[in-house]
Each structure stands twice: as structure tokens, then as C-alpha cells.
Design a protein around this nucleic acid. Structure first.
Lengths: 134, 134
DNA sequence: CGAGATTTGTGCGTATGTATT
DNA sequence: AAATACATACGCACAAATCTC
């Protein structure tokens, strides 16, 4: 049972528990976390509250949800290396809905935006690409 | 009035409208978007639905919410440039709750993570820092 | 193949709390 | 003090996807 505390909403406390379970490895990558119904019963909260906790983890990129199946701890992708040209600039932001659809980017995953000295822009999912500077 | 369509939930349609208003400049940076109650009445939806639409834009980093005041189109920060040492690697991810609190990072804003050749790691909010490669 | 169980998604309602103006 | 606006938490019902038998 979780009770509301001043400054710590129930769903945030629940999110913190699940986050800790993920970061310590009690919940392993690829593994299903407890269903909304299970969380509801285990912690004596409404389904809405359980969902809100999971939404926090989704926004952090810690879990991925498969409708009709369950919610899984995110698996690590193999990272590929980018070697941007000298003079390029690099920024990070959340993808647009189009970019998410086009490149199949999960929730809570930002993109690396590389702008070449010639002005050409390329966008790379942050869970699959990293930069290595020469 | 917005009606549910197969494959396009009402809150997603509403989020799309507001997103378009922001990206085209009909809603300018720093400006308040309509309140939840206003959206509720304008589009004939439940408040929950209006909130969900706004939650989408928050996760995209398009708006910031000020409790008790309203929801504003995000203002652009002045970007500062980082010049990472040769051999560094750079990744992008969402910040941890601690990082968000420590560096005062808004919702929907990723971080740039720079790992030096010596293994030292630095974390920079994606809305205030960019990399420029030599 | 279908039927049913499970799980997440959407939409609505109510009530109350907290912050700002 | 009152009005406004967002936050939290509960509830219900049905839809849609997945899985099992």
C-alpha cells in the first residue's frame, strides 16, 4: 500500500519503486513488469495511478509498452557509431511524430541532430547511434 | 467537436491541432495555449482528454506547464557551444529524475552525454547546449 | 479455426488538493 | 478572499491487441 505524501504523489512513489527495480536489475531488460491490474492490487491503487506511474517510465525511455501483451523493460540496442564531418554541429531533441513513425523510434527516446557545415541535416535515434569524435 | 476515428484517438487529434498551431507560429513561444477548460468546451471533450493531448506536447518538449497559471509554448534558449575533446563519444538520452532536478531540466528535454577519452562523463541539457566539432 | 482470458488504450465522470493571480 | 488553472486519485465502460486453449 502506498499513501500520498506531501510532495510525493502516489504514482511518483510507485514509479520510483519500479525504476529502482529496473536500475538494480531486479527487473531485467526484455522482462515484463507487473501488469496494471497486478500493480493495482499489489499496491492498493487505482488503475489510473498505476498507468500514470508507468507513463513516467515510458517518458524516461526505461520501458516499452506492447498493447495487449504487457510492458517490458527496454532492451539495449547495439550502438552504431557516427563520424560527423568537421565543422558539423550536433543537438539533441525529442523526435517529431513523423520522425518517430519513419524511423520506428520508441517513446522516451531522443534524437541526435547532426548539421553539416554545408547545412545538410541528419537525424539519428538516440538509442542506436552515438558520435565518436576524431 | 472532435470525434474518435479508427487509428486516431481524440486526444491525438487534438494534440495534432495544437502542435500545428505551435509549429506554424499561430501560437508563439512564451504564449499561453488555451486552458484545459477552454479546450474542453471548444472541442466538446472531457477534461481528461484535453489533459492527455497536452501531455503529448509536454513529452515532445513543445510546451511547459506552470501549475496554477497555464501552459506555455516553450521559449527557445540561447544555445551555448560545447567543444568536446578529440576521442570523446556523445550520446543522447532522457535525463534521470535527479539530473532533471539538479540541472532544472524541463519535461521533454533530453540530455547530451559526453564521455571523454579519459572516461569522464558530462551531461548537458539538450535545450541549452550544442556541440560544434572542430 | 474460434472463444475466451488477459492486457493495454481511450473516454468519460466525480471529488479534492495545490498554486497562481 | 475569490477565481482560475493545473495535479492527483478514484471510479466505470468499452475498444483493441495479444495470447491461450
Amino acid at each position: 500500500m502506498i499513501n500520498p505524501q506531501p510532495g510525493a504523489a502516489v504514482y511518483m512513489q510507485l514509479a520510483a519503486r519500479l525504476r529502482a527495480d529496473i536500475l538494480t536489475g531486479r527487473l531485467e531488460p526484455g522482462q515484463k513488469i507487473p501488469s496494471e491490474t497486478a500493480l493495482q492490487q499489489t499496491y492498493g491503487v487505482a488503475r489510473d495511478t498505476a498507468r500514470r506511474a508507468i507513463a513516467v517510465l515510458r517518458a524516461e525511455g526505461l520501458v516499452v509498452v506492447q498493447r495487449g501483451h504487457g510492458t517490458l523493460v527496454r532492451d539495449h540496442h547495439a550502438m552504431q557509431e557516427l563520424n560527423p564531418a568537421p565543422g558539423s554541429t550536433v543537438t539533441a531533441r525529442m523526435p517529431t511524430p513523423e520522425e518517430r513513425a519513419d524511423q520506428d523510434i520508441d517513446e522516451g527516446i531522443p534524437v541526435l541532430v547532426v548539421t553539416g557545415a554545408d547545412g545538410r541535416v541528419s537525424v539519428h535515434p538516440g538509442d542506436r547511434w552515438m558520435l565518436r569524435l576524431p
